[in-house]
Amino acid sequence: MDLNDWILSLHVLSAFALVGAMVIFWIMIVSLWGTDSTSRVASLMRVSQIGTMLVSVGSLGTIIFGVWLAISVDAFEIWDGWVIAAIVLWALAVELGRRGGKLYGDAGTEAERLAAAGTETSPVVAETFGASRALQFHAASSVLIVLLLIDMIWKPGA
């Protein structure tokens, strides 16, 4: 394996971390759908912490190793249409994911606090873990990530 193979490997592993985190959050959203139980939400906060860590590593790894690869590999250029599309999709997906993650994170922290204080239900938690703005952000971010994957595999115009 030469340097470019290692960069590609790290780029793909980062992409797995990013999509893996997205999957973790989807499983949590489906599992907690419409719940107002603070203890149920608090129980899954450990899982959410791993998702948050993976999304950070995955987001940074995909862009750093992706751009490095586009510069390093002779067959590709950073200004190729599909590379620019990927960077734009990545930026939008990360920002929307960050906004959704902030809303879910705040609700999770609130649920942990209430559960520790002995409060069993919360309307705020129920609202966030239903058809909320947080869900819209997460769904939009997920769609963009899938489009990004399609762009990476088909490489339109390459």
Binding site: G20, V23, I24
Partner: peptide
């Protein structure tokens, strides 16, 4: 290839979720 990679990504995410859920210490009773 898309099917293979996307399936593998979901598999890794789901397996990570299951592992953390089983092995992480509990938060509440």
């Amino acid at each position: 290839l898309f099917l293979h990679v996307f399936g593998a990504m979901i598999l890794v995410g789901a397996a990570t979720t299951a592992v953390v859920a089983q092995l992480a210490p509990g938060v509440v009773t």
